[in-house]
């Protein structure tokens, strides 16, 4: 009897310990996480338009949302994101490669409801503070703590007639390295 109790208690204690280890280790070993899926999409610094609600895909099943994602690496040069055109609503969120949100905004927080943004490292930010290139004068400068990450641009489609407009908006969106 004592032996069974000993086995059960030790087993449960070990299970609790391993449970914690598994939960903490999953983000590092997951093979279906956002970063892996985005890397499979194709090149960096390019907006990939995503299909809506495909099982196992990147987007949730919301039928009114259209999204595009761009993976970036700002180790060499900053990346600039621009988009303009008619939309009902747009929003943007920047994540690091572990899917932690670092910055987000929507059309109401942008100038003239246009998206013009540059993601820069701390060092690039210092040099821009001294001497900001003319073409970045209107851009929102976002200081990013690490060099790689991804951003998601979303817009909504209240009815089918907005579909083409939303696709045009996402097609026209640019995510490009700044040549310095």
């Amino acid at each position: 009897m004592g032996r069974v109790l000993f086995i059960a208690l030790t087993g449960i204690f070990g299970a609790a310990l391993l449970h914690i280890v598994i939960v903490l280790a999953i983000p590092a070993y997951a093979d279906r996480d956002v970063w892996t899926k985005i890397q499979a999409l194709g090149p960096t610094e390019f907006f990939h338009r995503l299909p809506t609600g495909r099982p196992g895909g990147l987007t949730s099943a919301n039928p009114f949302v259209r999204s595009a994602v761009c993976r970036f690496d700002i180790g060499e040069a900053p990346v600039r994101i621009t988009a303009s055109g008619l939309t009902h609503y747009w929003s943007l969120a920047i994540f690091d490669r572990y899917a932690n949100e670092k910055y987000s905004m929507n059309d109401r927080t942008a100038t003239d409801r246009k998206l013009d943004m540059a993601i820069v490292t701390t060092l690039q930010m210092i040099s821009y503070r001294k001497n900001l290139p003319e073409f970045l004068e209107d851009a929102v400068l976002v200081e990013f703590p690490v060099t790689t990450g991804y951003l998601v641009l979303r817009t909504v489609v209240p009815d089918a007639s907005w579909d083409g407009i939303a696709q045009d908006f996402l097609k026209g969106a640019q995510c490009q390295s700044v040549d310095s």
Partner: peptide, 13 residues
Amino acid sequence: RARTGVLLLGGAE
């Protein structure tokens, strides 16, 4: 979120 691998909405979104 690592297991589901779905893009989540940001705070301002």
